[in-house]
Simulated scan of single mutants.
Amino acid sequence: MRIDVVSLFPDFVRQCAAVGVVGRAQQRQLLQVEAWNPRDYTSDRHRTVDASSYGGGPGMVMMIEPLRATLTAVRNAAPEPAHVIYLSPQGPRLTQGRVEALAKMPRITLLCGRYEGVDERLLAHEVDEELSIGDYVLSGGELAAAVVIDAVGRLQEGALNDALSAEQDSFANGLLDCPHYAKPVQDALGTVPEVLLSGDHAAIARWRLKQSLGRTWLRRPDLLSRCVLDKTSRALLDEFRREHASQALSRQNEAVDD
């Protein structure tokens, strides 16, 4: 897969894409990340990419021509069609489902805005979709681009040392992930649940699913409301709820006794 990023800070993009799973994916030639600076496609000696906004107001707007010229160069750089995404708080929220769909494309292009944004005419004619990583405002689209690159890059076949890691991530099945533990078994902070030490794979799978259901119920009930649970999952969730209520009651009684 190839990801092209249009940014005024191409070195930042390259550095983010050079480390971790994404860096390894590039080394294994599973992923190619290229950064393009619109200043390289300007026609004046000041390399101007922005201008004041018509109608007045603070801030500058990224102009059409440098971005259009950059996108033309991006499209001509490889034979695959470039699906252009503008990273903007006005776009639909990025989800794991959308990440999985993007990861199957041979090529995407990420357009990083700056200042007050990008001329609306360019967005209307040169951009295929807008995406947001959350309901907040950043100084530019580079951090959002890094998020998309990481989320998409790690799903390329062979990028992860264990392919099951992606299958068991939060959101992969619509639920949050279960708790995880490592050495030591016993610590001042607590003990690893016995079931995880039992070697009983069926019991471990059951515990993990129950914890995943329960954690989603506690922290992201909106996700749970969109899931269609089978009979086993509903029973496990009910079991978790009863245990949670019992533990809460015990804590209340202990607080009264103190």
Rank of each mutant, 00 (worst) to 15 (best):
A73G: 02
A73K: 11
R75M: 10
N76I: 00
P81W: 09
P89C: 03
Q90E: 07
L94Q: 12
T95R: 04
T95S: 13
Q96N: 14
G97P: 00
G97E: 12
R98Q: 07
V99S: 09
V99R: 06
E100R: 15
A101G: 04
A103H: 14
I108L: 14
C112D: 11
G113D: 05
Y115I: 03
V118Q: 00
D119V: 00
E120V: 10
H125E: 15
E130W: 03
E130C: 12
L131W: 11
D135W: 06
Y136E: 11
S139G: 14
S139D: 14
G141H: 05
G141I: 06
E142W: 06
E142D: 07
A146D: 00
D150R: 12
D150W: 13
V152A: 03
G153C: 08
E157G: 10
L160H: 13
N161Y: 07
S165M: 02
E167K: 15
S170Y: 04
A172W: 06
L175G: 12
L176C: 06
C178T: 00
P179W: 04
H180V: 10
K183P: 03
K183D: 06
P184N: 04
Q186D: 14
D187Y: 15
L189I: 02
P193G: 06
E194V: 09
E194K: 14
L196C: 09
H201R: 06
H201F: 05
